[in-house]
Design a protein around this nucleic acid. Structure first.
Lengths: 299, 299
DNA sequence: CGAGAAAGACTCAAAGTGAGAAGAACTCGC
DNA sequence: GCGAGTTCTTCTCACTTTGAGTCTTTCTCG
């Protein structure tokens, strides 16, 4: 192909036994941590404290410790460090899955770095603390980085223009670095290829809640159907038909199970007290909860 | 967590600038290449010509060339080398997508190796040629490695016990190494964690043809609805209702488009000449072609 | 108090699905 | 050449699932 068939000679093959005899590739993990804050989908970002991309926002992550940890362990470790959640004991409620790997030779100016990206769904977490080498950490509304501009549109047959009907952007990010610029403005692209990784993570999240019950990972132990619908609306960026959603959620076996209780107080804007549910034992939703038509994606 | 928070001190962080100052991790690509031969799903395996796991069967793959190629390029290169398909010019018809990364520190006894696995769907290819350091290459029926034992079962309402009804294993693998044992027998586990990777690839393939038109990647330029159904039956390991499948395929917009022609000869066992179709322009099938119930997977 | 909002149950029409049947076209074996 | 067996393709029928809308009840807010 390029004369590198020599990469298969016995000499070069044996060289693999000496770990330092060839150009190395570094391996990192980067994590797309998603959560809901005030009904808006946020992603955890850190402000880089060193070169390259110093001062820019990036996904949390770090180097995999060679010979000491698996990729998933590295991701869990970084997640614990960067969210400061380790001590809060809430980490076991976070869903963590591998997203994909990114290995273009020029994606890091220092050397060839392969990043294994992970995707995490977290319930509402306290403000982020800047751990390790980061100069700041913040929960940022994903809308600012979302090329699909997935702000909630009313669903097709929705007559009213409710609170979700394309209103202005929600509150600014909470950051532990008061001087940090809010990320997401024009000149504030993410470091490395993290914009691509984030976009892929959002795609994955939007698809995943269709056929798995993982939307419940964004909520507390107990939740109402309305809160669950809020997760879908925030992630998909569309408002959904409340009645149909309710029917559907309760009809999918194992999605949610009733706790018997009702919410101690109704929603902020009134209404009856909703019944409470917890996540059921299904790992897959069958039948799935499909997104409203998205003709653009089809071709 | 384990006192390695030191991994975030400035000193260690700067060490990343010297690529050889820390324990390296090697990066490889491994490819699950699937194809159909005589209506049976096969995977491409190579026989290892060196330690470790010498003489065992493994997925084709190799080291990523640091600083020279992306992960996808490395996968495409290895695929071309190992299938000998490069010159046949058929590589552009092969679908190649990233499957996932595997990085347990002990998965390779030599050192910490992270493998980025790819999944390929190929039309029927010529016999494999052992390229590079492999001592042999073969197309092997996946059934031998498939814990789900996905041999075609008749669909629920299928009265007859046709040719798909759980017959014996199909022809043995074609290999360029005549002395090679047929892989897949009791004591012939795949090298490394390749059994896991293969299983993940099969899961992905089975899910992917539900909502994408990629089943057509297993076929030639033109095909009949019956051949397309054969792909689904081989991959899912179930026979499908011919009439419903036909209706469904033609009703999904952009899945297939008619060429206007008909097959030059009917199927081997008779029947009228089927109409010919080619892949349409859809990237997603909507609505999807869902597998028959699989209650086991749900919980 | 009345307006507005949400929870939840309901109706109705449209679309999609599984199962079976049937006609036409073709292969074999005899 | 004939009949049995296959396959392709189209239909029918019953059933399920879906989107959209309505309605009642329970609550908050002004």
């Amino acid at each position: 192909m390029d004369g590198r068939h020599a990469g298969h000679t016995e000499a070069e093959f044996l060289a693999a036994y000496d770990p330092r005899a060839f150009d190395p590739i570094a391996v990192t993990v980067d994590i797309v941590v998603l959560t809901l804050r005030q009904e808006v989908l946020h992603v955890l970002l850190v402000r880089r404290g060193g070169q390259p991309f110093e001062g820019r926002w990036a996904l949390p992550g770090g180097f995999v410790q060679a010979g000491r940890e698996s990729l998933a362990e590295a991701a869990a470790r970084e997640l614990a460090e960067e969210t400061g959640l380790r001590d809060a004991g809430g980490l076991d409620r976070v869903h963590l899955e591998q997203l994909g790997s990114y290995g273009h030779p020029d994606r890091d100016p220092r050397m060839h770095v392969v990043s294994v990206a992970y995707l995490a769904f977290a319930p509402d977490l306290p403000d982020a603390t800047a751990g390790g080498d980061a100069a700041g950490a913040a929960w940022v509304p994903v809308e600012r980085f979302d090329p699909d501009a997935a702000r909630p549109r009313p669903h097709a047959g929705d007559g009213r223009n409710g609170a979700h009907g394309g209103g202005p952007v929600r509150p600014s990010p909470v950051t532990t670095d008061p001087d940090a610029n809010a990320p997401g403005s024009e000149d504030d692209a993410l470091a490395f290829d993290h914009a691509t990784i984030l976009a892929d993570g959002l795609d994955r999240a939007r698809a995943k809640i269709e056929y798995t019950p993982l939307a419940t990972a964004f909520l507390g132990e107990e939740f109402t159907v309305g809160q669950l619908r809020g997760v879908y609306e925030a992630v998909w960026g569309r408002s959904l038909h409340a009645g149909n959603f309710h029917r559907k959620v309760l009809s999918v076996p194992g999605f949610v199970e009733s706790t018997g209780g009702t919410a101690s107080r109704p929603g902020a804007r009134g209404g009856p007290r909703a019944r409470l549910y917890r996540a059921g034992d299904a790992r897959l939703l069958h039948p799935a909860l499909l997104r409203p038509e998205r003709e653009d994606d089809v071709r």
